[in-house]
Simulated assay, not measured.
Amino acid sequence: MTIYFYSTCEKYGCFSNFSPHGFELDEFYWPTSEHYFQAQKFVGTPHADQIRQVKTPKDAARMGRERSRPLRPDWEQVKDDIMRKAVLRKFETHADIREELLCTGDELIVENAPGDYYWGCGADGSGKNMLGQILVEVREILRLSNQQ
């Protein structure tokens, strides 16, 4: 069975970067993993802090996509590792959602995002599903750390 997620109000909504599961990372508190991810596009600039402080993950995403802001030059090289770092910290911080992720066993996890062919599966299922792949990696990291 494949586990699909997208909206925060559906089953497995906690897998979404918009889920309200904040955490501390890089000496700051982040309301969602979306806030952290989008802010990292502008790390070391006032833009990063502006994004960290906005009310909703939707606002953080919108601000992160504004090309009027100076995107860091290495973004394409570092974005997967930044996403992995944020998702891991989110699940390390919250026992309830960590348990939900671990209870998915060895199932494939897919972000059912019709408009996103990189982080999600895209409208036709041909997307890379990088967020789903990262969730599977994080599940394995958490599983191994539970065994120690």
Score class of each variant (00 low, 15 high):
1 M>Y: 05
4 Y>K: 14
6 Y>K: 10
6 Y>I: 06
8 T>F: 00
9 C>L: 02
10 E>K: 14
12 Y>R: 09
12 Y>K: 01
12 Y>A: 00
15 F>V: 01
16 S>W: 00
17 N>Q: 14
17 N>R: 03
17 N>P: 04
18 F>I: 05
19 S>T: 12
19 S>L: 03
20 P>L: 00
21 H>W: 05
21 H>C: 07
22 G>F: 09
24 E>M: 08
24 E>W: 05
24 E>V: 08
26 D>R: 12
26 D>K: 06
28 F>Q: 06
29 Y>E: 08
30 W>D: 02
31 P>M: 07
33 S>F: 07
34 E>H: 06
34 E>F: 03
34 E>W: 02
36 Y>A: 04
37 F>H: 04
38 Q>W: 07
38 Q>R: 01
40 Q>D: 08
40 Q>G: 06
40 Q>T: 10
42 F>C: 06
42 F>S: 01
45 T>E: 07
45 T>L: 09
46 P>C: 08
46 P>K: 00
47 H>W: 04
49 D>R: 14
50 Q>R: 15
51 I>T: 04
51 I>M: 02
52 R>N: 10
52 R>V: 07
53 Q>H: 13
55 K>S: 12
56 T>S: 12
56 T>F: 01
57 P>G: 02
58 K>P: 07
59 D>S: 14
59 D>L: 06
61 A>V: 00
62 R>M: 10
64 G>S: 12
65 R>V: 04
67 R>W: 13
67 R>A: 10
67 R>E: 15
69 R>V: 05
69 R>Q: 12
70 P>C: 08
71 L>C: 13
71 L>F: 08
72 R>P: 01
73 P>V: 14
73 P>E: 03
73 P>K: 09
74 D>W: 15
74 D>P: 14
75 W>Y: 06
75 W>A: 11
76 E>T: 09
76 E>S: 13
78 V>E: 09
78 V>K: 11
79 K>W: 09
80 D>W: 15
81 D>R: 03
83 M>V: 12
84 R>S: 02
85 K>A: 03
85 K>L: 12
85 K>C: 08
86 A>H: 10
87 V>D: 04
88 L>A: 07
88 L>M: 05
96 D>Y: 01
97 I>E: 06
98 R>N: 00
98 R>Y: 05
100 E>L: 11
101 L>E: 05
101 L>Q: 06
102 L>A: 09
102 L>M: 15
104 T>K: 01
105 G>P: 08
105 G>A: 08
105 G>R: 03
106 D>P: 12
106 D>E: 15
107 E>Y: 13
108 L>N: 05
110 V>P: 06
110 V>S: 07
112 N>A: 15
113 A>D: 04
113 A>W: 03
114 P>Q: 10
114 P>Y: 04
115 G>C: 02
117 Y>A: 00
118 Y>K: 08
119 W>A: 01
120 G>E: 05
123 A>W: 01
123 A>E: 15
127 G>E: 11
127 G>R: 00
127 G>N: 11
131 L>I: 14
131 L>W: 00
132 G>S: 00
132 G>W: 00
135 L>C: 13
140 E>R: 14
141 I>L: 12
143 R>I: 02
144 L>M: 15
144 L>Q: 14
145 S>P: 07
146 N>H: 05
148 Q>V: 12
